[in-house]
C-alpha cells in the first residue's frame, strides 16, 4: 500500500511482529481501528497488549510489518495528535497535581497561558481532582494517581488516545466514572484504544479485539462476539474461551 493512501482508519496494523531478544511478543498481528470509537484490547497477561500499544505510540519499532496511526507512521511529527497513559502512574511524585498536568500541557506546546490554564483545569476537573490540585502526587492513593495520570494524557485534547490498563487497581465506583469519561471523549470524536485483562471493562467498549500469544484471535463488537458462540446467554468470558478453543482446534 502506498504511504499517501489514507483509508480513514485511526489505526492500521498489518502483519506486525515484534521480539524481545528471542521472546516473540507479537506474531504477524493485523488490526484496524475506525475513528471515534472506544476499542478494547482484551487478553490475559503476556498476550502482547502493552507491546502493541508501545509499538503504536512509537516507543518500539516493529521487527516486521507496518503501522499507521491516523494514516502516518508513528513519529514525533504527529506526536501532538496522540495521548498516552502508560501502565505505571508515571507522574512526578514531588510535584502537585496541577504542576504535573501543567508540565505536560507545556510539553505538548499549549503555549497560550490563558488557554493552557483553562485546559489544565478542565482535565483535572474531568477526573474530579480539582479540590486536591495543590497536593503532592506522592500523598495520593493509587486510584487518585490513576486519575491524575489520565488528566496528564488528555490535557492537550488528542484525537487519538492510548490507555494501557487504565482501570487496574480502581474500585468499582471509580471504574464506572472512568468509563463515563471515556464515553464522553468518544462522543467528542476521539478514538480510544484501551488495554485490559478484565471483561468488566470489555462490555463498555464499542469494539473489541481478543488477544492471545501475540495475535488477535477475534475482533468485533461485544454483541457480535457473544453471538459467535451460538449461545444466547453467553458472556464475554464465554466468547473469549470460545475463540481460544476454536483457535486450538484450527491449529490441530
Amino acid at each position: 500500500m502506498p504511504e499517501e493512501e489514507f483509508t480513514g482508519q485511526a489505526v492500521e496494523v498489518a502483519q506486525v511482529s515484534f521480539k524481545y531478544n528471542s521472546l516473540k511478543a507479537l506474531d504477524g498481528l493485523s488490526l484496524q481501528v475506525p475513528r471515534g470509537v472506544s476499542f478494547g484490547l482484551l487478553g490475559p497477561n503476556g498476550a502482547g497488549k502493552t507491546t502493541l500499544i508501545r509499538l503504536l505510540v512509537g516507543l518500539l519499532r516493529p521487527g516486521a510489518g507496518t503501522i499507521r496511526i491516523l494514516g502516518q507512521r508513528p513519529s514525533r511529527k504527529m506526536a501532538h495528535l496522540i495521548g498516552y497513559m502508560p501502565q505505571l502512574h508515571s507522574l512526578y511524585a514531588e510535584l502537585s497535581i496541577i504542576q504535573n498536568v501543567d508540565f505536560f500541557a507545556r510539553i505538548y506546546r499549549l503555549t497560550d497561558k490563558a488557554e493552557r490554564a483553562r485546559r489544565v483545569e478542565a482535565a483535572i476537573r474531568l477526573v474530579d481532582m480539582w479540590t486536591r490540585r495543590n497536593d503532592a502526587v506522592q500523598k495520593l492513593s493509587g486510584g487518585m494517581k490513576q486519575r491524575v495520570s489520565l488528566a496528564c494524557a488528555i490535557v492537550h485534547n488528542p484525537p487519538l488516545l492510548f490507555l494501557d490498563e487504565p482501570t487496574v487497581g480502581l474500585d468499582p465506583e471509580l471504574r464506572v466514572t472512568f468509563w463515563e469519561h471515556f464515553a464522553g471523549l468518544t462522543k467528542q470524536g476521539a478514538t480510544l484504544i484501551i488495554s485490559s485483562h478484565t471483561m468488566d471493562d470489555a462490555v463498555h467498549c464499542d469494539y473489541l479485539a481478543f488477544m492471545r500469544d501475540g495475535k488477535v484471535i477475534a475482533r468485533g463488537s461485544p454483541g457480535d462476539l457473544k453471538q459467535a458462540t451460538g449461545r444466547p446467554e453467553a458472556t464475554l468470558e464465554d466468547a473469549f474461551l470460545h475463540f481460544v478453543q476454536r483457535g486450538q482446534q484450527n491449529a490441530i
Binding site: G58, A79, Y84, P86, S90, L91, I107, C152
Partner: peptide, 14 residues
C-alpha cells in the same frame, strides 16, 4: 524508573 520518560518520549519534545 518512574515511567515519566516514556511519556516524554511519546510527546512532541525532542
Amino acid at each position: 524508573s518512574q515511567g515519566t520518560m516514556e511519556r516524554l518520549m511519546v510527546s512532541p519534545v525532542s
